[in-house]
Design a protein around this nucleic acid. Sequence first.
DNA 1: TTTATTATCGCAATATATTGCAAAAAACAG
DNA 2: CTGTTTTTTGCAATATATTGCGATAATAAA
Lengths: 249, 249
Amino acid sequence: MLKAERQQVILNEVRIHNRVLFTDIADLLSVSVDTIRRDITELSVAKKLKKVHGGAISLGFNNYQVENQEIYALENKSRIARKAITLIKSGQVILISGGTTNMEIARMIPPNLKITCFTPSLPVAVQLMSKSEVDVILVGGKLSKDSQIAIGGCAINMLNDIKVDICFLGINSIDVKNGVTDFDWDIVQIKKAMINASKKIVAPSISEKLNSTQRFKICDLDKIDVLITELEPEDDKLKAFREVNLKLL
Amino acid sequence: MLKAERQQVILNEVRIHNRVLFTDIADLLSVSVDTIRRDITELSVAKKLKKVHGGAISLGFNNYQVENQEIYALENKSRIARKAITLIKSGQVILISGGTTNMEIARMIPPNLKITCFTPSLPVAVQLMSKSEVDVILVGGKLSKDSQIAIGGCAINMLNDIKVDICFLGINSIDVKNGVTDFDWDIVQIKKAMINASKKIVAPSISEKLNSTQRFKICDLDKIDVLITELEPEDDKLKAFREVNLKLL
DNA sequence: TTTATTATCGCAATATATTGCAAAAAACAG
DNA sequence: CTGTTTTTTGCAATATATTGCGATAATAAA
């Protein structure tokens, strides 16, 4: 068995069970514990999981990036995710769109938080499947190859039938004057439907996306209840948003 | 043997088994390990696969496979998948449920085959996303944590609205007398709806699942148009199925 | 504390990678 | 067709990587 294979198996186990024991994996793959230990040390150095005494545990966030640039952005996104999660109360029904920031939110949902989660995003659904306390409800429809989100009439119909507590709306561009905008017509339609389906709209967005505008409008700023960025709410860059009485986090 | 041929073989092996060993391929093609190493280095540079110490692995990150036992079953399943794919014609609309055999079918759909594919299965959908010529339409609904399939009224409603050319129905148990059966009530409902939504039902099943029965009935054998196993259609083990005029592949 | 489990280190056996080179095969120009 | 050039292939020598094991240290648990 190849080393790379073993490491994939380990990562997969961690993904599913949130933790592994050296002894279990060694047994499973019929290699020595030392080998597994070394594998996990490597994976740990590569920041794919966290090595602990006796085994390894899931990182809670990570994996798909290589470049420094992206790792840096990830830090911001997981900071946003940490804030976002404080808004979720046990027992609530939430709706979450796609995007890497929302992936982070999905990933960081604590394992004991009992919620129902609607999503049209394939990667988010996959992520949420590992949370045993989260009921995942997939919003069906034609999958966009780019965004990996269900789009089209079917998805919108399904969204029209629900009313959830909170919606985490992935943001591509947000601007005080032009509101929330996006460049993909199909996704704009889905996001509009998501807004309609929710009592409270939360917009998680890294600060780079502030003050930019795309071709199509999703909604005005007054539809947004909370804007979450990686910055402190008092930050100068958020001045314009504070002035229109947008709640910041 | 031409270099290009060899590389084709290598890619194919990787696609089927998710990994190859230099030594295996060298043996298989009767060339030196160095040659294979050089081939794989080239393919790796071309980003067709990932070279690792001792061999190469598939680029896809949805690789699940653990024990030798399971790899062996995988061989049977990919044999089934190969046969199943011959039933699909370009331009058709198909419906595919979950299960590892169906995952194999999804994985082995050739990259140039232009089809529309409905599925309530999360892993199958993920798999299909990498096929640029396949339109993927997700059947939405509550996701079952066990089977990673959308279940419940919403999914069934959506299935009631469609009529596809072929359905690949994941099989848990199939028996001449009791027909197709399963142990999960929710999945039974989905599969019934899938059968209703299809003109032609194909049942891919490894031979181990033949002649077994579970608690809940999905349909009688006469609903099934084609049964695919890893065996030759003339195999003795399939005698009972031949006698009821079930088409075998 | 004591005890059992897990970590770490060094080492040896084996497997794999790399390099340079020469023979064979293919491509090509005259 | 012939001789030359380029590519491909196999091989050998050497370097590097991987793995399992034993001895000992560190850590967690009772």
